[in-house]
């Protein structure tokens, strides 16, 4: 089963230009007191230039570790072992020296984290956060850097940027702070932005503003986006393609619309059914998923969702399903749901 989830389906491979990102059989293993923990266990992805990919999963599914491994923040070092390949615009991220890696950050790939307050240095003004990176990467002088910082603040929609630039992080609201963090990530015009739960700490009205901002920036700057979230709703309207992760693996990936309307993996289906729908009448019984996610230091054999899956049969425990499927809609399941929409050979249910 080591190889099973690793195959990149030919339908996904772009025919023309070089992909922005190729992730091939990526594994991130963390040594813990309780033994090796396979946080990411054989993930393969391709992201085209300018494309937006959503990665959804519950806590512990490995989605954040995947994002950080793509960035090169996790590499074979200390308790962490990374195998497999991450090719960022053709560059093998895991093979880079630390110094080359820092050059890559900012110019090729930028990252936005969940908590904007801890991502900012409380004793530095907003402007310093922005000028630091552009001076280092672009060799601008002080005045030029400040101009660039103001430009960036305007770009991310911070009103009154000339005043804000000299304020400290604590003087800004959560939404404004997240805009500053996004401005930092954009300072050197990365071709790929990885946003890990960028709106989770924010209120719903502010969340919409930040998601709108990411949409606009993607359109204006033509960058690719990986949006990592536990919230399926956040990802639904904002990405071209979605990958659902469970216990360190991608269990289903498809274009956003078919994944949300015609999920084939029982986990994806169950996850959608568990969210209350605003348009349904109140007091509807929710379709909860029994049990809890597996302990990743001792994951179950075969399909990892099998112990919680209501369709599970003997073969699910025996053989891990391969991520495969027709027309770019891939799923790792022996007994897919919504099989009516599948071509005959897989439509077994």
């Amino acid at each position: 089963m080591t190889q099973s989830t690793a195959q990149v389906h030919p339908a996904q491979a772009p025919v023309t230009d070089q992909p922005m990102l190729v992730v091939d059989d990526l594994r991130t293993v963390i040594q813990t007191a309780r033994g090796p923990l396979k946080a990411v266990d054989g993930v393969s992805l391709i992201l085209r230039k300018g494309e937006a990919l959503g990665i959804v999963g519950e806590s512990g599914s490995g989605k954040s570790v995947l994002g950080r491994t793509i960035m090169g923040l996790h590499r074979t070092e200390g308790p962490i072992t990374v195998t497999g390949k991450v090719l960022l615009d053709g560059i093998d991220v895991q093979a880079l020296e630390r110094k080359q890696l820092t050059e890559l950050w900012g110019s090729k790939v930028g990252m936005v984290f969940q908590d904007p307050l801890t991502a900012l240095n409380p004793v530095k003004k907003v402007g310093v956060h922005l000028t630091e990176t552009v001076r280092k990467h672009r060799g601008l002088n002080r005045a030029q850097a400040r101009e660039r910082a103001l430009e960036l603040l305007d770009l991310v929609g911070i009103p009154d940027s000339r005043r804000r630039i000299d304020q400290y992080p604590h003087e800004l609201s959560g939404g404004m702070r997240q805009r500053v963090v996004i401005a930092m990530a954009l300072a050197n015009e990365p071709e790929l932005l990885i946003a890990d739960e960028p709106t989770t700490a924010l209120d719903v009205t502010v969340q919409r503003q930040i998601l709108d901002l990411l949409d606009r920036l993607r359109a204006e700057l033509g960058m690719a986006l990986i949006l990592i979230s536990h919230n399926l709703g956040v990802v639904a309207g904002r990405t071209d393609r979605v990958a659902v992760m469970y216990a360190g693996r991608v269990v289903e990936t498809a274009d956003a619309r078919s994944l949300f309307t015609q999920p084939h993996h029982p986990y994806a289906e169950a996850l959608l059914a568990a969210i209350p729908d605003l348009d349904e009448p109140p007091h509807l019984r929710l379709a909860a998923i029994d049990g809890s996610p597996p302990d990743m230091s001792a994951p179950p054999p075969g399909c990892r969702f099998a112990p919680r899956c209501r369709y599970a049969q003997d073969d699910c425990v025996a053989v891990a399903p391969v991520l495969d499927g027709p027309g770019g809609h891939l799923f790792a399941c022996h007994h897919p749901v919504n099989a009516g929409s599948l071509p005959d050979e897989r439509g077994e249910r």
């Binding site: 719903v204 919409r208 998601l211 709108d212 709703g233 309207g237 949300f260 309307t261 015609q262 729908d277």
Partner: peptide, 20 residues
């Protein structure tokens, strides 16, 4: 209007997201 929804209808167009 701000709630992002995962319950898309098959025939529904892309979420019309008004400027906040």
């Amino acid at each position: 209007e701000s709630v992002p929804t995962a319950h898309l209808d098959a025939d529904q167009q892309e979420q019309g997201v008004p400027s906040a």
